[in-house]
Write a protein that binds this DNA or RNA. Structure first.
Lengths: 331, 331
DNA sequence: CTGTTAGCGCTTTCAG
DNA sequence: CTGAAAGCGCTAACAG
């Protein structure tokens, strides 16, 4: 069914070299033969065999993007922007989900290498040196985001530490004197790459340490709700729960509602990411907002520029700001 | 950097044919030479060139999936399941987003054809005959979902018409005597493939027609909220708004809250899809629930079976049921 | 301006 | 058991 350049050559009574010159309009061919070849190609609905082309050209116009999963809406928004930019620049993208499984992540990346993707956008779950040298060995351009590696891999995200510092400062401003930082990913410390959770955590610790009157706790548990329950009973000052991402804040909010604990009257609540779904939540959630579409677009841009051997900054940090909602209140 | 079978052949003093026999453990090779070749391959970290392999084998172990977008969570859930099943069966997947753009959809599908994907899972935005014959011409296995074509393309989804009939029956049971069906996608009638919206619409009309006491309206507008506002003022009987998907129901709920119209006291509200995020919504939304993970998994399964030339049913319908939430109430 | 040749990396058939 | 040769479909360098 599929017509090849060889067939066109035979039909036109020329050789494949000539057909190639016409098809890829390169110089050195008589206008008449070119026209004829183009007409025949058109009629037969000729389409070049992409794999064969890739094999000889050495590139595939394909990008891979590795995410943990796509349940957290922040990543589907990011993907959408990434895909759109990739398309505009002529690339198609493989989306693979590692489910935070380190083995699976390596398997997938290997598979992407085998398929000769031109570049990979990576949200890494692995973090050791072995992994990094594995990535380096392939010489495939890689840009990381949302979690950092320490080899020479460009990174794009936000300044997480600063964002949490800003959040703490904001809550302090509103009169909160006791903060609970909730970040279940921290429990995977030593097991997985938790660069970003760690950054946020440090931001929290440092910011709190600088405010003399501030008391604080950290919850880094799978069973964070039960821990929260016991904790909440012991606190008497004005207290807020700062979550490392909106999805946890939503879980907490749901739980608080079930317990008839009023937000923000009895306890303040703050998330992180400003995912689109927040617009349907009451009370509206105070959160850290940043332009994830911009990240997705720039991620693709950086990757493609690396593919084209252009210089790209090793670190690109997008702006963020605290977005005030009804889930916290002043005095 | 990348080691080829040719290099291994030279190093082992054999020919590439022999190397191939070892690597793909085929019969007709001396155990010793096999061992040696395997050892050398291992040491050099040999990995077969996937594109070259595909070129000669005639398959790519690649699936394409075409979605409108990934903002509606129902589709990210579906993708997750699809991807997981594909991986288990040895496939990697291209995710492309048509944004409901018919031109773009064709471009993308052409691109997937060019790349010789083994099969495509398609949520079609196009619907005319030209499009279908275009799809057929390529002879690439295609399975559709979420919107139907009428060529011989297997289809998997739910029985949408029945689901809306069930919803209407349910609402009637609860004592509602006036229903507003809200389905903005209907406005694209004649412009795009709206098979599923149409099915749901017909379910609504037919079900209402069978209930003598029932009055009803349909909103199929982009500016559905303003239309809703004027409509609501004219209604005196117990009324519910039935939305063609949860995302519209959430928009409506948000708007009603802003207008201080209480759900379900003043008006009932019902969605469709039961997306995961609903668990964070108050009042909890009455909706139509179905197992979208099952759809994603079966979609991949059907597609792969078609690729393997197995017979697959032309239509696979997953169960659904009305899930009662607090957004509707009896008498 | 066009044909010939070699090659991308792998598989497969046919001899030996 | 192994080598030689052809081919997947396309590109590119070199002659003519």
């Amino acid at each position: 069914m599929n017509v090849t350049s060889k067939q066109i050559a035979e039909l036109c009574g020329v050789t494949r070299g000539t057909v190639d010159r016409a098809l890829n309009n390169r110089p050195g061919i008589h206008p008449d033969t070119r026209d004829k070849i183009m007409r025949v190609a058109e009629e037969l609905g000729y389409r070049p065999h992409f794999l064969a082309q890739s094999l000889v050209k050495g590139h595939t116009k394909t990008l891979g993007i590795v995410l943990f999963d796509i349940h957290n809406q922040i990543f589907s928004q990011l993907f959408h922007a990434f895909e759109a930019e990739a398309r505009k620049r002529g690339y198609i993208v493989y989306l693979v989900l590692s489910n935070r499984d380190k083995e699976l992540e390596m398997e997938y990346i290997n598979n992407l290498f085998d398929r000769r993707v031109d570049g990979i956008a990576l949200l890494p779950a692995n973090d050791n040196k072995k992994f990094e040298s594995f990535l380096l060995r392939s010489r495939t351009p890689i840009v990381t985001f949302g979690n950092r590696l320490f080899g020479p891999f460009p990174y794009i995200w936000i300044n997480d530490k600063q964002a949490i510092c800003d959040s703490v400062a904001f809550l302090a401003d509103q009169g909160y004197r006791h903060l609970i930082y909730l970040s279940p990913p921290l429990m995977r410390k030593g097991k997985e790459n938790i660069y970003v959770p760690e950054q946020r955590y440090q931001g929290f610790i440092e910011a709190c340490a600088e405010i003399p009157a501030m008391r604080f706790n950290v919850i880094a548990h799978k069973q964070y709700l039960t821990e929260l329950e016991t904790l909440l009973e012991t606190i008497d000052s004005k207290c807020a729960i700062l979550c490392s991402s909106d999805v946890y804040a939503l879980e907490v909010l749901k739980w608080l509602k079930a317990r008839k604990i009023r937000v923000p009257d009895q306890v303040g609540l703050m998330g992180f990411d400003n995912i689109e779904f927040l617009k349907y939540i009451n009370p509206s959630l105070t959160t850290v907002d940043y332009n994830v579409n911009e990240i997705g677009t720039k991620l693709a841009d950086l990757l493609i520029r690396r593919i084209n051997d252009e210089e790209v900054p090793v670190e690109t940090l997008i702006d963020h700001h605290v977005l005030q909602g009804e889930s916290v209140m002043s005095e």
